[in-house]
Deep mutational scan, measured.
Amino acid sequence: MGFKLLSKLLVYLTASIMAIASPLAFSVDSSGEYPTVSEIPVGEVRLYQIADGVWSHIATQSFDGAVYPSNGLIVRDGDELLLIDTAWGAKNTAALLAEIEKQIGLPVTRAVSTHFHDDRVGGVDVLRAAGVATYASPSTRRLAEVEGNEIPTHSLEGLSSSGDAVRFGPVELFYPGAAHSTDNLIVYVPSASVLYGGCAIYELSRTSAGNVADADLAEWPTSIERIQQHYPEAQFVIPGHGLPGGLDLLKHTTNVVKAHTNRSVVE
């Protein structure tokens, strides 16, 4: 069995187990497998329904001669939608809004960016022009300005110390501490036991640490421990890039980060 097929099978099995364990909360999309990078042309966006009122959005972007996937989250909030992270750029984010209108038909009224990198804030200006209120932590807003990236308009308070959590509509926002970046936030959907790890969490097929220019490698494993301790009931975990899975993604990420750190020390 090929690795790609095995990865998709694991996603399907995880979703099936969740649907059985929580039949009222989960209505997993039966329309197909989780979209992969090879299936999404740059400039297009796919939506994948995880649970009743919960979707991931998947886009792709060219970077350094390669094409990478990027995940975000959409959560229903009454007759409105909360968006977590842009679709990595203005063109993708405009396509995301169009796809949401086509498939869901509810307005996106608020959006949260989970850290300051372009795959999370690139497209904020498109959201703002569409009347979406954009939010991020003060740290993310400051770092985005320093980096020359787009800056969300509103500040999220109460997320300055490791372990801080605040309720934001249908989700809980959690600051686990520094990891992929010093400002990275985690998003949890309690009604569906869905954990969105953003770039602080890796997919299972990833074996290298990737972009760690703004990471705190020493603190990252401790931050992941905080996530595990705060959300032990999480059933569906979405990484910032690639295929979702279960809580095993947290341990896998820790292993990859520690291996990278150990290699760096040896070198």
Results as ranks from 00 to 15, higher is better:
His57Trp: 11
Ala133Gln: 05
Ile186Gly: 11
Asp79Phe: 08
Glu150Met: 15
Val112Phe: 01
Val112Glu: 00
Ala209Tyr: 03
Ser56Lys: 06
Phe26Tyr: 09
Gly163Leu: 10
Thr14Ala: 12
Phe174Leu: 07
Thr254Asp: 09
Ala87Asp: 00
Pro170Gln: 05
Tyr175Lys: 08
Arg142Ala: 10
Pro221Thr: 13
Leu9Tyr: 06
Glu147Thr: 01
Leu24Met: 05
Pro232Thr: 14
Leu143Arg: 06
Gly131Trp: 11
Ala94Tyr: 14
Gly245His: 12
Gly2Gln: 09
Pro190Glu: 11
Glu203Pro: 03
Ser191Lys: 07
Val256Ala: 11
Val194Ile: 02
Glu157His: 13
Ile17Leu: 04
Asp85Arg: 00
Tyr48His: 07
Arg76Asp: 07
Leu217Thr: 04
Ile100Glu: 00
Val187Ala: 10
Arg263Tyr: 15
Leu247Trp: 05
Ala95Val: 10
Val45Met: 08
Lys258Gln: 05
Thr222Tyr: 05
Gly43Ala: 07
Leu13Glu: 11
Glu203Met: 15
Leu81Gln: 01
Ser56Arg: 07
Gly89Asp: 10
His260Ala: 06
His241Phe: 02
Asn92Val: 10
Glu80Phe: 05
Ala215Gly: 09
Asp183Leu: 01
Glu219Trp: 09
Lys251Gln: 08
Val266Cys: 15
Arg128Lys: 10
Leu73Val: 08
His180Lys: 02
Val37Trp: 12
Ile58Gln: 07
Ser139Tyr: 00
Asp216His: 07
Val166Ser: 02
Ile227Val: 09
Leu106Cys: 15
Gly245Asp: 09
Ser223Phe: 14
Phe168Ser: 06
Val265Leu: 04
Asp118Leu: 14
Ile186Ala: 11
Leu173Gly: 10
Tyr196Phe: 06
Leu83Phe: 04
Gly72Tyr: 01
Phe63Ala: 05
Leu82Glu: 07
Gly122Cys: 01
Asp77Thr: 04
Thr182Ala: 02
Ala15Ile: 02
Gly246Leu: 02
Ala19Cys: 08
Leu143Asn: 07
Gly43Glu: 04
Glu145His: 06
Lys251Gly: 12
Gly122Leu: 15
Ala90Ser: 11
Ala136Thr: 08
Gly177Lys: 02
His180Pro: 00
Gln49Ala: 10
Glu233Cys: 06
Gln228Ser: 13
Thr114Arg: 00
Tyr34Leu: 05
Gly177Gln: 02
Pro107Met: 04
Asn262Gly: 08
Leu5Trp: 06
Thr207Ile: 15
Val194Asn: 00
Gly210Ala: 12
Val54Phe: 15
Asp119Tyr: 02
Leu13Lys: 07
Thr222Arg: 10
Asn71Phe: 15
Arg167Met: 03
His252Gln: 14
Thr253Val: 10
Gly53Ala: 10
Val67Trp: 05
Leu73Phe: 03
Leu13Ala: 12
Leu204Asp: 13
Val266Glu: 06
Pro35Gln: 15
Val237Arg: 03
Ser27Arg: 05
Thr36Ile: 05
Gly123Gln: 01
Ala94Leu: 09
Thr153His: 15
Arg167Leu: 09
Tyr196Asn: 09
Glu157Val: 10
Asp77Arg: 07
Gly148Glu: 06
Val45Asn: 09
Ala209Gly: 11
Gly78Pro: 11
Gly32Ala: 08
Val146Ala: 04
Leu143Lys: 01
Ala209Met: 13
Thr36Leu: 04
Ala165Asp: 14
Lys91Glu: 14
Tyr202Trp: 11
Glu99Ser: 12
Asp85Tyr: 00
Ile17Ser: 02
Ala111Leu: 14
Ser7Trp: 07
Pro35Asp: 03
Glu44His: 02
Leu127Val: 14
Glu147Pro: 14
Trp88Gln: 00
Asn211Ile: 04
Val108Lys: 01
Trp88Asn: 01
Gly131Phe: 00
Asp216Lys: 06
Glu33Lys: 09
Asp79Ala: 10
Leu127His: 00
Lys102Ala: 08
Val42Thr: 13
Ser137Glu: 14
Phe174Gln: 03
Ala192Met: 13
Ala25Arg: 04
Asp125Tyr: 10
